[in-house]
Amino acid sequence: MKLKPTPPKDAVNRYLRDVEGHITDKTHYNYSTTLRRFLEWCDERGIEDMNDLDSELIDRFKEWRLEDVKPITAKNDMNTVRNFIEYAATIQAVPTGLSDLIRIPKVSEDDEICDEYLTRQEAKSILQYLSKYEYASTRHAVMLILWKGGMRLSGLRALDVRDFDQARPALEIRHRPETKTPLKRKEKSERDVILSPDSAEIISDYINDRRDETTDKFGRRPLISTREGRAARTTIQKYVYTSTRPCHHNGGKCPYNRDPDTCEAIPFDQANKCPGSVSPHAIRRGYVTAAQNAGQPKDVTSERVNMSGKILDKHYDKGSHDEKAERRREYLKDI
């Protein structure tokens, strides 16, 4: 097979167009971020044609990534690169079979597990603060739904006002890829999340009094909205980072001895630089751990947050050995 001259940037753009529509927006963003790093690496080394790539060069890219990121991140990056190279072979930009020669970094089971999570006490403190000082604000609604529902960020973004059933009360999470709010597991992620009356009242007050009355470009009324329409993933992340900074909800005290007048994490756009702030996914891990510690049956938690029991145990339940032992106490028999 004769190879066709193909600039790396052109190949990447064609690949991203090819997979668009078959993957979620978040996955597409992750792919584009990884391949942007790959293009930077190619540019630094003067690689202007995909024809010039071979397995040795791609292995050097892997080594380059391992200098700056954790093994699990490099593993994910190289899986993306391998899929991209496999596609590049179909457009005759690289030799057929090159993707089979790409070695993926091996990681230990511990490296695959993220320990970042929001504790029940932290969540309680945050929600108490928001209820007192930012009642029914967008930030309050975001933190309340993420914590009480243990849901993914994509599930929160997918919610419309019509998906809030105050009578039950519940949030109805639905997969709507045709209007740009896909769920991670598609229809398998669809479910209804039952709410307490107190939580439902806060969401109702948010909708009636504080929500920006806007529609998205498809005419839908997003539950979490901004003046421009449906809140972007990055906007929701910023709400979470600012809410989980310890100084935001503990009376202004910084556990890291930083000066609030000079702290880089004080601005809204920089809150993720606080060592104590956490991501939306850390809230999901925290909810799962708190639910297990409270004695909620594993199958109930699994169905509520839409994950298998195996994944729940491996990646989300952050209970200590003592906490897990206490959960088993009432089931033990003296034999």
Results as ranks from 00 to 15, higher is better:
P169Q: 04
E112P: 03
Q292M: 15
R328K: 10
E323N: 05
T33C: 12
Y87L: 12
R168G: 05
R60V: 09
E201P: 00
K238A: 09
C263D: 13
I145E: 01
R17G: 02
I311T: 08
R258V: 12
D261C: 07
H140L: 08
G276C: 05
V94N: 02
E20M: 01
C274A: 08
R45Q: 12
L3A: 07
R36D: 07
T27W: 12
D111G: 02
D322T: 14
P71M: 10
K238P: 02
R176G: 04
T96E: 14
E67V: 14
F84P: 00
P95Y: 08
K180I: 06
A325W: 09
L183C: 01
A232V: 00
K314N: 12
E40G: 02
C274S: 05
L53P: 06
A89N: 04
S279C: 12
A200H: 08
K2I: 13
R82C: 06
L159P: 14
E86K: 15
I58K: 02
R210I: 00
N293R: 11
W147P: 03
A294K: 13
I58C: 01
V300Q: 15
V142T: 15
R329T: 10
K62R: 15
G46Q: 09
G286Q: 08
E109M: 10
W147F: 14
L332K: 06
D43F: 04
L127N: 02
Q92G: 00
I47N: 00
Q92K: 15
Q237W: 00
V19R: 13
S154C: 09
W147R: 01
L66D: 06
Q121E: 15
A294W: 00
L223S: 09
D68E: 15
L66A: 04
F84V: 03
D261Q: 10
A282W: 03
I224R: 11
D192V: 15
D163W: 10
D111T: 06
D111V: 05
R45L: 14
K26N: 14
V288N: 00
A123C: 07
K75Y: 07
R65V: 14
P255G: 05
D49R: 04
A141Q: 10
E48S: 10
D54R: 01
D209V: 01
E63H: 09
D259H: 09
E63L: 11
E201S: 05
R304N: 12
K324W: 12
H175P: 04
T301E: 04
E323R: 05
A170W: 00
I85P: 01
D59C: 03
D216A: 08
D160L: 05
R230K: 10
A88R: 02
M1E: 11
N51Y: 04
S99F: 01
I91L: 08
T181K: 15
S154N: 10
A123K: 04
